[in-house]
């Protein structure tokens, strides 16, 4: 029923056997300017000297100590002319226009919703950026402002697209598409945002009757497969779009949703970037092993999955 373990890290022999040096070991450190112009991405550790402060300016993720520009985070070095920045690996989501995100309503305000999208600031969803019942082209009425909680209320999950940025850097979202809107019939899995790559489509249908929405902000919605409704503008059904009621979901689908959720968690624990083909292969691998939904949580099954995936990939 329960088991206790120690905090000690799993021993990784390749990591322990390789020689590691203190950053002060000068002869191994190449602090030439050429280093920053190369096309190879360069990784840093916090405290690692990147370059000389005489020739370069410090940007985000760096600081200057005496003559050197030093990384303050682990990440990749980026350079624009004389500005050196380090893009951190573990960070909050950095939005870009057109990104697909999954968010959660945190607050209802006049004519807008505040949305938690794993970014530095809450995102904003304007009442004018959602599809209202009764047709897409309908004018907003005062009555819509008074019943905003009928569309989205606190805690609701939604899928949306980044539309623009405000002057303070907060993102503005929109759900003006039939693909976007309120989420139901499933569960949310959270991973570090860097693990979700930009794909052709972030709506993935697995053959086991599970739909995935990979939000670029690291929120992943795993749900029952929805049949494509007719895509015409007339087919917009406010009842269904803003409904809080789940459909009937059979046990096999529920088990599949749990299994997919666990696959994503295991891959994220091992810091494997997620793609549609990887998730598909991982699901097939788990089915081959004939494990039930909690199989991946036991012992070395997670490690075995990641090993199998890295061999194929």
């Amino acid at each position: 029923m329960l088991s206790f373990i120690s905090f000690s890290r799993p021993t990784d022999s390749t990591y322990r056997q390789s020689t590691r040096h203190h950053p002060d070991v000068e002869d191994l450190m190449d602090v030439d300017d050429d280093d920053l112009t190369g096309s190879e991405p360069r990784l840093t550790c916090p405290g690692e000297t990147i370059t000389s402060s005489q020739a370069f300016m410090r940007g985000h993720g760096t600081y200057v100590d005496k003559e050197d520009v030093i990384a303050s985070v682990a990440g990749t070095v980026e350079r624009v002319n004389k500005l050196v920045t380090v893009r951190a690996i573990r960070t909050r989501y950095n939005p870009e226009v057109g990104d697909l995100v999954v968010g959660r309503i945190t607050e209802v305000q006049p004519r807008r919703w505040k949305v938690d999208a794993n970014s530095r600031q809450d995102a904003v969803l304007m009442l004018s950026s959602v599809n209202l019942p009764g047709g897409v082209q309908r004018r907003k009425l005062e009555s819509d402002e008074l019943q905003m909680r009928n569309f989205f209320e606190e805690g609701d999950l939604l899928v949306a697209e980044v539309q623009a940025f405000f002057s303070d850097g907060a993102m503005s979202l929109h759900t003006r598409s039939l693909k976007y809107g309120k989420l139901r019939n499933g569960q949310l899995v959270t991973v570090p945002p860097i693990l979700v790559r930009r794909l052709k489509s972030h709506f993935i249908s697995l053959p086991c009757g599970v739909d995935l929405i990979l939000g670029l902000n690291g929120y992943i919605w795993v749900s029952k497969h929805m049949k494509d409704t007719d895509q015409g503008e007339e087919g917009f059904d406010a009842e269904a779009v803003y409904s809080n009621k789940n459909e009937d979901i059979d046990n096999a689908t529920r088990a599949a949703i749990s299994r997919v959720g666990n696959i994503i968690r295991v891959l994220a624990d091992h810091f494997v970037p997620l793609t549609d083909s990887l998730l598909l292969e991982a699901y097939e691998w788990v089915i081959e092993q004939e494990g039930d939904a909690k199989y991946l949580l036991l012992g070395d099954a997670g490690d075995a999955l990641v090993a199998a995936m890295s061999v194929r990939g």
Partner: peptide
């Protein structure tokens, strides 16, 4: 049978680390 989000049984604990 009952099913939890991560597939655990109803009386299963997650792994507990103690030091």
């Amino acid at each position: 049978p009952p099913l939890r989000a991560d597939g655990r049984g109803l009386t299963d604990f997650r792994t507990i680390a103690l030091e």
